[in-house]
């Protein structure tokens, strides 16, 4: 109900924007076409004509784009535009929602991830996810990080597990803060520390792609700055797709930016291009704060 109202207001403002004569040198864009450069050479993940439905309601319309290796792609757009839904489609997290259905082709290094014969467990180990709200398990800090390696049987000996935990916490920038209290519950950490713990937990499984769904929206500015720093470091080893509401964050952390609007992918371009000279008038309207 809520969502419908939000969307209809967005729709109205968008309509009024579209009916406005196009400004500057931009040519009018054909309906339903993504402008910019959605595709890259030898992509890590390639999505073609993706539709997502919640029961009868379509949330994503015909989205096609690539995510390249070791790049940070940010996904921006107004509330309810479908960016989180699209992100969750990338490691089949939508499977846990009753009535959710994904159509189209989604490939991870050429392999169809919605192949009915494919086991979703190794897929999610390769494509990890960090959520909006920090969600540490009600276990110790150590056990939180060790959870993934344990269930996947990645290590045999306790010493190896200790190494993995320490390494993951180091890379998540949390080691110095928690090394003396690894046996205390993860839920006792501050919000920002919890989110870094969740990132450590994710990288402990050594995924290839990390999906981040508004990872900083529940954090204060200092904790946010730490996470953003961390994302920059992680991009050396991981491919990262991040959904964010903060355009500044998208500008700071990502190399390419995708703009979603009402379930459609409007524009994908280099981040710099999107924030200085967007190709599509809807993108421009959003980043200049005329709606959203």
């Amino acid at each position: 109900m809520m969502e419908a109202t939000v969307e209809s207001t967005i729709e109205q403002s968008a309509d009024s924007l579209v009916s406005r004569p196009a400004t500057g040198e931009r040519a009018p864009v054909a309906e339903g076409e993504t402008v910019g450069s959605p595709f890259v050479d030898s992509p890590k993940m390639a999505m073609r004509n993706v539709d997502v439905f919640y029961n009868d309601k379509q949330a994503i319309f015909d989205v096609s784009m690539d995510i390249g290796s070791n790049e940070v792609v940010s996904m921006i757009g107004p509330s309810g535009c479908g960016k989180s839904t699209f992100l969750r489609a990338l490691n089949r997290m939508n499977d846990t929602i009753e009535g959710a259905r994904v159509e189209g082709s989604l490939r991870l290094e050429g392999q169809d991830i919605y192949d009915p014969k494919l086991d979703v467990v190794p897929l999610r180990a390769r494509v990890g996810m960090v959520f909006q709200k920090p969600n540490p398990f009600p276990k110790s800090i150590y056990d939180n990080v060790a959870y993934g390696p344990r269930i996947h049987g990645l290590v045999d000996r306790r010493a190896d597990l200790d190494d993995v935990v320490e390494d993951s916490l180091q890379r998540a920038g949390l080691w110095n803060e928690v090394k003396d209290r690894l046996n205390q519950p993860g839920t006792g950490l501050s919000g920002g520390q919890q989110q870094r713990l969740c990132i450590a937990r994710t990288i402990a499984v050594s995924p290839e792609v990390i999906l981040m769904d508004e990872p900083c929206s529940a954090l204060d500015p200092i904790a946010t700055a730490k996470i953003e720093e961390l994302i920059a470091e992680l991009s050396e080893n991981f491919t990262i797709a991040i959904v964010t509401h903060s355009m500044q964050q998208a500008a700071r952390v990502s190399s390419r930016t995708a703009y979603f609007h009402l379930g459609k992918l409007i524009e994908v371009n280099d981040t710099e291009r999107v924030f200085t000279n967007p190709e599509h008038e809807l993108t421009e309207a959003y980043i200049t704060g005329r709606f959203g």
Binding site: N91, M93, T96, V121, P122, L123, R124, A125, R126, G128, M129, V130, F131, K133, N135, P136, F137, P138, Y147, G148, I151, H152, C198, R201, T202, V205, L211
Partner: peptide, 17 residues
């Protein structure tokens, strides 16, 4: 909370795990 389940699924845990 569903977020705990999501967190576990997101790491590639099976439902029974």
């Amino acid at each position: 909370p569903q977020s705990l389940r999501d967190g576990s699924f997101g790491l590639g845990a099976t439902q029974s795990e």
